[in-house]
Design a binder for these strands. Sequence first.
DNA 1: AGGAACGTTGACAGCGCTACCAGCACAGAC
DNA 2: GTCTGTGCTGGTAGCGCTGTCAACGTTCCT
Lengths: 366, 366
Amino acid sequence: MGRKRTKSGKIRLAEVAELAGVSPITASRFFRNPEALSVAKRTRVESAAKELGYVPNLAARALASQRTEVIGVLIPSLTNNVFSDVLRGIYDASEGSPYSIQLSNTRYSILQEEKLLRLFLAQKPAGLIVTGIDQTAESRAMLEAADCPIVQIMEIGPDPVDMMIGFSHYDAARAAIAHLFAQGHRKIGFVGARMDPRVQRRLDGYVAAMKDAGLFEQRLVVTTSTPTSVTLGGALFTDLLARAPGIDAVFCANDDLALGVLFECRRRDIAVPEQIAIVGFNDLEFMASAVPTLTSVRTNRYEMGRTSATMLIDAIEGRRPEQPVLDLGFKVIERQSSSSRRADSKPAASGTGAANKMVALPSSHD
Amino acid sequence: MGRKRTKSGKIRLAEVAELAGVSPITASRFFRNPEALSVAKRTRVESAAKELGYVPNLAARALASQRTEVIGVLIPSLTNNVFSDVLRGIYDASEGSPYSIQLSNTRYSILQEEKLLRLFLAQKPAGLIVTGIDQTAESRAMLEAADCPIVQIMEIGPDPVDMMIGFSHYDAARAAIAHLFAQGHRKIGFVGARMDPRVQRRLDGYVAAMKDAGLFEQRLVVTTSTPTSVTLGGALFTDLLARAPGIDAVFCANDDLALGVLFECRRRDIAVPEQIAIVGFNDLEFMASAVPTLTSVRTNRYEMGRTSATMLIDAIEGRRPEQPVLDLGFKVIERQSSSSRRADSKPAASGTGAANKMVALPSSHD
DNA sequence: AGGAACGTTGACAGCGCTACCAGCACAGAC
DNA sequence: GTCTGTGCTGGTAGCGCTGTCAACGTTCCT
């Protein structure tokens, strides 16, 4: 045996075919579409492959077939907890499929995104997952010309390139503010960092809600383009207090900021929620554990990642979804930090697609 | 022009060569080793490539050259903040290099790791980054037989497969306990979750330090194999209080647990640090922002990722490091939660390799 | 002047796999 | 009995690139 192994000592398809007593092409078919073989040959090839420990050479396959089994994923950040949940969903969904994930970080730059897109597309990926709906015109054109399925994640918009899965950050922010209104709060500040397009839309939702109630004032809004952090939450809140001393609530564009605000309140002996209510965004795990527990807008990040990869793989394999745009909704999780009744964890408003699409976050975070 | 483009409309190397008036092999060399060409041909090929917008076909290259430009990365978790920092470092270091990162999640299972390793190795990666030093015998054998550079990250041990970069979790835990001793604490509890090998070694360090001082008691240790979380920190601390009511300090195996303990203290009106001191591990960003600020053991996660990828790429390209094992050290960051003097943020003990190797964490977390 | 040494270039032959098409056997329709 | 269709199988011919080695021209030495 092994008389004509490749130099690297690897077993090739030809060896498997020889052992199984079939032609190489038949063996090849076994790995791509076993049903096309007669049962007899199928079992022969199967056992031959197992006996030799055959592993297909993906480079050769890609070259010959003119396509790859790579799913490209473009996300703006690796640090942000939000994306690590999404990623976990994507990786989980890709497991057991032949597709492998190729991840790249756009660092919140749509120019960087365009560059990476060009790179990805040149390698003919099987599918693509991109973040958000704010691509450059050039990127947009490339995406539309790409001959592979594409999913846009994190938010939904009117004009999907192909498929889209997310929720309305605008509506979610409005729901958070509506919740605060319902609790009797009127002077509600906004604290935001990074100000990427999705945070911007949360701000837009906040502004609209406040304007509708005739309560909007520019000085209630404090933002920065700096990356978010807990410490930054405290600093922005300090700014906000200086600009608008009379506020009775703060809506934070994410949970890290909210935790920073909570700590800053503690430092200043401001009672939460009696003097100032706090609402965060994303509902990270620690929000339910803080003292007081912190209200937040729950978003289905893991589910978003998982579903996007599942939809993408289905589309790659020809099973197009009946609905290309999926709204995963959100849910305002009311906790002590914004409850005038000091009740713990009672659900309030839910987002559009939410009511029945709402799924539990996975209990095991590994 | 374009009279013999490939069906897919892609530009091939041959077209570039033709336009430049050189042979394909010369054009090929331009992309791999430009110095080998005369300046005249170099510029000719360069402008031809640019004019045609040529992008090399990686599958063909991989097939012909019998190697890939893929760096495999095996980490146990995508959720854990610790790994997202490491990953960011790895991705940052790989940027601008021809190597692309192929990430896989072992889910803290060494059997899963073995399976993934087999998969990776079959594709002949350019290099490999694996987490920790606790591989199965089979994995170990595969790693040793692999003909590519390998870096083990997160910790250091006596017997590297190839290169190794990390720090001693055992020493770091001992340093944390020494710090608590110095502050006058004696009855120090240990709270740990997940209990992966690195957490286990932190526990070992704690036990050794306590035994050396004649203070060890089994009931001071509360652990679980459950994945870590802030909420879990509170729950484990509650257990600890029930088992050992008289404790005056808690060493937490990570910062999430420490935050949970802090919140639980708040809930129970236990004064920190007056009644109970708290020390965490990793020094995540929020530790400096909590009230009171939380002492932690700083570890150089981003640096670890970045350096490991840099070392790996250097090794791939034939530049072997003079020292294959790199101890990145640690540093106990003393803050209010463990300071009898209630001082803020004064450095205490540093780990072995730390003193001069210590580098600042990147200020911009994006 | 001859030749060695060097730097540069190109021809050839695959890398391992799959697309394409042809061929064969057999079943059912007429 | 012929024809068409279906299911399975195999041969041929690349996919686009690079390893190897030989050949070329030039320079520098003896």
